[in-house]
Design a protein around this nucleic acid. Structure first.
Length: 263
DNA sequence: ATGGTCGGTTGCCGA
């Protein structure tokens, strides 16, 4: 079983590269974030024509939005709102009775890493705190679960191009890393990508648009994650960061992150 | 220290 997560930055504009990716890498399940489309305008038929018969999506006009495309049956198991906003940042589904899958788009948090003056950063911190509390109180570490998405936090030193230079940059501040680590510790989630590609190797899934040459500068960050609970940890057979996708025609600023399972 | 580029509720806001 091949699972992928990809912040697509407008699902309608990216249909050509979604087709390119699904044809070249053939994921069984593809989780998208930042679809930026209300449900009535979601390109459902185009996606079904790529071979994904089972599709669940929650979107809003212009902002946020998440979707799961699957070749296997999906059942909604409690997609919900977080941090007091109805802003379409989460889906929870059962994948064919095999595992529970959570697809998240965590708030980016704005530029100023101070919750006293920046409401967006405060929202991000409250969102991650709520993830910690919800998974701790309601879930069991013995349940086969996968958590994916654009978590908008690069937790490890080698998840960014310069640890020292990004300590005060939103996505890599100590307070964000601490809170994300608390989510991870609650259910003893295993970071599937880092289990296969340990530090100190640099791993990035996002490169800013604001660069003349993203490849030459290579100032990336690992913002997109795949976590699994203990029952699935030894079933991960491989991971792939599809860096090529950053150079495709009309790219997203994020690239797909793939995890293969032997279930 | 600054500015750079995308997408869409476009001539701004969020990322």
């Amino acid at each position: 079983m091949r699972l992928a997560t990809w912040n697509i930055n407008s699902v309608r504009l990216r249909m050509p590269i979604i087709a390119q990716f699904t044809e070249s890498h053939k994921p069984d399940v593809l989780c998208l974030q930042e679809t930026k489309v209300e449900d009535s305008k979601f390109p459902l038929e185009d996606i079904k024509s790529l071979g994904y018969e089972h599709v669940i999506f929650r979107g809003m006009k212009g902002y946020n939005g998440v979707a799961i495309l699957s070749r296997l049956p999906l059942t909604d198991t409690g997609s919900r709102d977080w941090a007091g906003k109805e802003d379409c940042r989460h889906l929870a589904v059962d994948v064919d009775g095999k595992f529970e899958l959570h697809n998240f788009y965590v708030p980016a948090g704005g530029d100023e890493p101070n919750p006293e003056v920046n409401e967006k950063f405060d929202h991000k911190l409250r969102f991650v705190d709520e993830m910690r509390d919800w998974f701790k109180s309601d879930r069991k570490a013995s349940t086969p679960m996968v958590l994916v998405g654009d978590l908008n936090i690069a937790p490890l030193e080698n998840d960014v191009w310069s640890h020292k230079q990004l300590l005060k940059i939103v996505s890599h501040t100590p307070i964000e890393v601490e809170k994300l680590t608390a989510v991870q510790n609650g259910l003893k989630w295993v970071d599937a990508v880092r289990a296969k590609i340990p530090e100190p190797e640099k791993v990035y899934s996002w490169w800013s648009y604001r660069s003349r040459d993203w490849q030459a500068a290579n100032k990336g960050r690992r913002l997109d994650h795949v976590w699994v609970t203990a029952p699935l940890a030894d079933k991960v057979t491989g991971v792939d960061i599809v860096k090529d996708a950053r150079g495709w025609e009309k790219p997203s600023d994020h690239v797909p992150v793939i995890v293969d399972f032997d279930l």
